[in-house]
Design a binder for these strands. Structure first.
Length: 489
RNA sequence: GGGGGUGUAGCUCAGGUGGCAGAGCAACGGCCUUUUAAGCCGUGGGCCGAUGGUUCGAAUCCAUUCACCCUCACCA
């Protein structure tokens, strides 16, 4: 029937069949383990002395047969450990089971005593073994592991298994989020959960994912930000609030962008963007110190120090520093002249402030290597931020940049319902002109502010990007367990 | 979307003026009771990403196409 000789999978399926004929369950419901392999290593000397018999579990990651004895390494989530099985000690049945039926990738339960080999390696002398779970597919090659970028993501579990740095990176990621929570919780911030499925999306400029609720026959969007709901929570009287969760933006994928990503947003009543800047600075320093153990952070060969206070420079000032020109009161013709001169591409239909933003992105953003707050943005770029007192066209906003990446964005929040309505109307005009990322009018949110919103500061920070820097990862894909990928075939 | 790169065995990779498809690891059979990239002897394994073309003959040359990576553009 099958013209080709059996594949590795077929060979293992045959073993499965033979095992079942031998009355052996290849997928046991229960496993017994006295301790992890890591703690076994710690207790090794003591257990050798007391000749203690121990039982542990792990996955076979290598196997070396020597005729009537055999070595293998097993690995659990904590460590790997060598085992040694001898025919005369465990008998023919068990020995042959190990020799013929157990493959690299299988999970075993091992009972035995401890000894050191000639080369001083800590080893379990097997007295009994039990198959816990049989693997049908082989593990990647043992000393190169998985190299192909596509496969590393597609089979992330193998990547984690074969490359301890990959696994470690995701453990650090978890530590970063728990450190953030601990820090904010200790300062009295309350973590909440707001809707991911929203009837209107807002709080950022982005194209949304759309979906549909069948029972209510209602169009819904996946949130692009948590902002507008967290402000409702502030209105509701929780004065210090935050949420860590996924946002979804229906846009391109590259090393700094993924359609779903993790964001933390923090809001605080009776605070302004200066307070929020202090909080952000302290938070970044705290998580860097707690998770890397140092305030000297190396990212892709460049080191920055978090010991001194972060620079704080205004939007217009940094543009002047980097371009050598004061563009604050520049006319449209002057802006275009500069863009042309610098060979920066731009949309000729874009408004003046978008042209300025273009210059900022091209000439400023990537130069902000040291942790830096850029403050006081043009009002037109920030429809949810409060006007800076005494100015007409500047808002109280900051963005935090590090290694040329935008990490956080914050403002003194607009809490004036009349002004907020006017800003939404401005956005709707842009939308009507074809800007699909302009914000949509949110009457329900306006009603909330009309009931009264305290002066509030808010901040959003990209968790994936922070993790990227703190784990010295080149791409977001390296810090997202399962990035979006096309299916095979 | 533009430019560049990659795609060959389960894994890591060779191969190329066009002439039977290769290695190591893994697998299978044999020997081996302290190995550890165990070793030794032997065996099997491939739609050379897909489609079409040129040719007596294509993994190799050409065109198209798919996937992934890099880069530029876009994208708060």
């Amino acid at each position: 029937m099958e013209p080709n000789p059996p594949s590795e999978r077929t060979v293992r399926l045959n073993k499965l069949h033979q095992l079942s004929q031998m009355g052996i369950d290849s997928y046991t419901a229960r496993a017994k383990s006295d301790m992890t392999l890591e703690s076994l290593l710690e207790k090794f000397v003591e257990f050798v002395k007391s000749k203690k018999t121990i039982t542990v579990c792990g996955r076979v990651i290598s196997k070396r047969l020597h005729g009537k004895s055999a070595f293998a390494h097993i690995k659990d989530g904590s460590a790997s450990f060598q085992i040694y099985a001898k025919l005369d000690l465990i008998g023919e049945d068990k020995y042959n089971l190990f020799k013929k039926m157990i493959d690299v990738g299988d999970f075993l339960q091992i009972t035995g005593t401890l000894f050191r080999t000639r080369t001083e390696e800590e080893t379990i002398l097997v007295e009994d073994l039990k198959l816990l779970s049989k693997a049908l597919l082989p593990l990647p090659e043992k000393w190169h592991g998985l190299v192909d970028e596509d496969k590393r993501i597609r089979y992330r579990y193998l990547d984690m298994l074969m490359d301890s740095e990959v696994k470690e990176r995701f453990i650090i990621r978890s530590k970063i989020t728990s450190t953030i929570r601990n820090y904010l919780d200790s300062l009295g911030y309350i973590e909440v959960e707001t809707p991911i499925l929203q009837r209107l999306y807002g709080g950022a400029f982005a194209k949304p994912f759309e979906t549909h609720h069948n029972a209510m026959d209602m169009k819904l969007y996946l949130r692009i930000a948590t902002e507008l709901y967290l402000k409702r929570v502030i209105i509701g009287g929780i004065d210090k609030v935050y949420e860590i969760g996924k946002d979804f933006r229906n846009e391109g994928i590259d090393r700094m962008h993924n359609p779903e990503f993790t964001m933390i947003e923090i809001y605080q009543a009776f605070a302004d963007y200066n307070d929020m800047m202090d909080l952000t600075e302290n938070l970044v320093k705290y998580i860097a110190d707690k998770t890397t153990g140092t305030l000297k952070i190396d990212y892709q060969g460049t080191t920055t120090e978090l010991t001194k206070p972060f620079a704080r420079i205004s939007f217009w000032e940094i543009i002047e520093q980097r371009t050598g020109r004061n563009l604050r009161n520049a006319s449209r013709d002057q802006l275009i002249a500069y863009l042309d001169e610098q060979h920066i591409e731009f949309d000729p239909k874009a408004s003046d402030y978008v042209l300025v933003d273009e210059i900022f992105k091209e000439r400023v953003e990537r130069t902000l290597i040291e942790p830096t707050f850029i403050i006081d943005y043009p009002l037109e770029l920030s429809p949810l931020a409060k006007r800076k007192s005494g100015t007409k066209s500047i808002v109280e906003r900051f963005e935090f940049f590090w290694y040329g990446f935008e990490i956080a964005n914050a403002f003194t929040e607009l809490n004036d319902p009349i002004d907020q309505r006017a800003r939404f109307e401005e956005q709707m005009k842009l939308r009507a002109k074809g800007n699909l990322e302009a914000q949509v009018m949110d009457e329900d949110f306006l009603t909330a502010i009309e009931h009264g919103m305290p002066p509030t500061a808010g901040m959003g920070m990209g968790i994936d990007r922070i993790v990227m820097i703190l784990t010295n990862s080149y791409s977001l894909k390296d810090v997202i367990l399962f990035p979006l990928q096309r299916p095979l075939k």
